[in-house]
C-alpha cells in the first residue's frame, strides 16, 4: 500500500489507465446515446419522457459512488495521513457535485411532465439535495482555513459524517412512502425490460469512464499544484537564514 503512497508511482499507473478510460468513455457514449435516444422503445406509461432516465440514473449512481470514494479517501487521509487518498478525495469532490446537480435538475425536468411537479419534499428528493450540499460543504471547508492542512482535515471529517446520508438515500424509497418510484432492482430481479437496460448500462459505463478520466487529469493538476507551492516556498526561503525559514513557510 505504501508503494502507492508515492505520487510518482501512483501517477505512473494512473497515466497508464487514462487512455483506456478515455476509450471506454467515448465508445460507451457513442453506443449509449443513439440507443438511449433512438433505438430503445418508448415506455408504455411514460412515453418518450422516460428517456431522461438515461441521464438521470447514471448521474444519481455516480453521485453516490463518487461520494463513497471521497469518504474512503478522507478516511485514508485522516487515519494513515495517506497523501494520495486525500488527493483522490479532493479531486473527486467537484465531479460528485456536478453529477449530483445533474441528477437533481434532470429529475426536475422529468418530474414536471410525469408527476405534475418539479419538486416535492419527499425523503428521496430531500436526501439527494442533502448530498449536493455535503459536496458543496466539502469544497467550501477545504478552502475555508488559512492553514490548508486544517481545511483539509475539516473537509475530510465532514465527508465522513456525511456518509450517514448514503444509506438514507438508498433506502428512502423503501423505508418511507415517497412520490419517487422505488428502485428498478428488486428482490425478484429488474423491473425494466432488456432493450431499455442495455442503453442504461452503456450510459452508466460512459459516466464511470468519464469520472476516471477527469479524476486522473485533476490528480495530475493537484500534484503539480503541490509542487508549485513547494517550489515557491523553497525559493522564498532561499535568501534568508535558517531561523526565518519556518516563519515564512506558512505565508501564501
Amino acid at each position: 500500500m505504501h508503494k502507492y503512497a508515492n505520487p510518482t508511482e501512483f501517477m505512473r499507473i494512473a497515466n497508464a489507465v487514462l487512455p483506456w478510460a478515455a476509450g471506454v468513455t467515448v465508445i460507451c457514449f457513442m453506443v449509449g446515446l443513439p440507443l438511449a435516444l433512438i433505438a430503445s422503445p418508448a415506455d408504455y406509461q411514460q412515453g418518450e419522457a422516460y428517456r431522461i432516465m438515461y441521464i438521470h440514473v447514471p448521474s444519481a449512481w455516480m453521485g453516490l459512488m463518487v461520494y463513497s470514494i471521497m469518504a474512503g479517501g478522507s478516511a485514508g487521509f485522516l487515519i494513515w495521513r495517506h497523501p494520495i487518498a486525500h488527493l483522490v478525495a479532493r479531486a473527486s469532490a467537484p465531479l460528485g457535485a456536478i453529477f449530483t446537480a445533474l441528477c437533481l435538475v434532470t429529475g426536475m425536468l422529468w418530474g414536471q411532465p410525469m408527476w405534475g411537479t418539479f419538486w416535492v419534499w419527499d425523503a428521496r428528493l430531500t436526501s439527494m439535495l442533502m448530498l449536493f450540499f455535503l459536496y458543496l460543504g466539502y469544497l467550501a471547508l477545504g478552502e475555508a482555513f488559512e492553514d490548508p492542512e486544517r481545511g483539509d482535515k475539516a473537509a475530510a471529517v465532514l465527508a465522513l459524517v456525511g456518509t450517514v446520508n448514503l444509506p438514507i438515500i438508498h433506502f428512502s424509497v423503501e423505508w418511507w412512502n415517497t412520490l419517487h418510484q422505488p428502485s428498478i432492482f428488486t428482490m425478484k430481479g429488474m423491473t425494466i425490460s432488456a432493450d431499455m437496460i442495455w442503453p442504461l448500462f452503456a450510459m452508466v459505463f460512459a459516466f464511470m469512464g468519464y469520472y476516471v478520466c477527469i479524476l486522473v487529469l485533476r490528480l495530475r493538476s493537484e500534484i503539480l499544484n503541490a509542487k508549485i507551492r513547494n517550489a515557491r516556498s523553497a525559493r522564498a526561503a532561499q535568501p534568508m537564514s535558517a531561523t526565518t525559514t519556518a516563519a515564512t513557510q506558512g505565508a501564501p
Binding site: 435516444l37 418508448a42 412515453g47 418518450e48 419522457a49 428517456r51 431522461i52 441521464i55 438521470h56 448521474s59 467537484p94 465531479l95 456536478i98 446537480a101 445533474l102 435538475v105 434532470t106 425536468l109 422529468w110 414536471q112 411532465p113 468519464y210 478520466c213 477527469i214 487529469l217 485533476r218 495530475r220 493538476s221 503539480l224
Partner: peptide, 30 residues
C-alpha cells in the same frame, strides 16, 4: 420526443454542458 421535447432535450443538453464544461475547466487549470 412524443411531445416531451421541452423536457428531454434540456436534460441531454445540460448533461452535455456539464460533461464538456468540467473537462474544459479541468484541462485549462492543468
Amino acid at each position: 420526443m412524443g411531445g416531451y421535447a421541452a423536457y428531454v432535450w434540456p436534460a441531454y443538453g445540460l448533461a452535455t454542458v456539464c460533461i464538456v464544461g468540467l473537462y474544459v475547466t479541468t484541462r485549462r487549470t492543468l
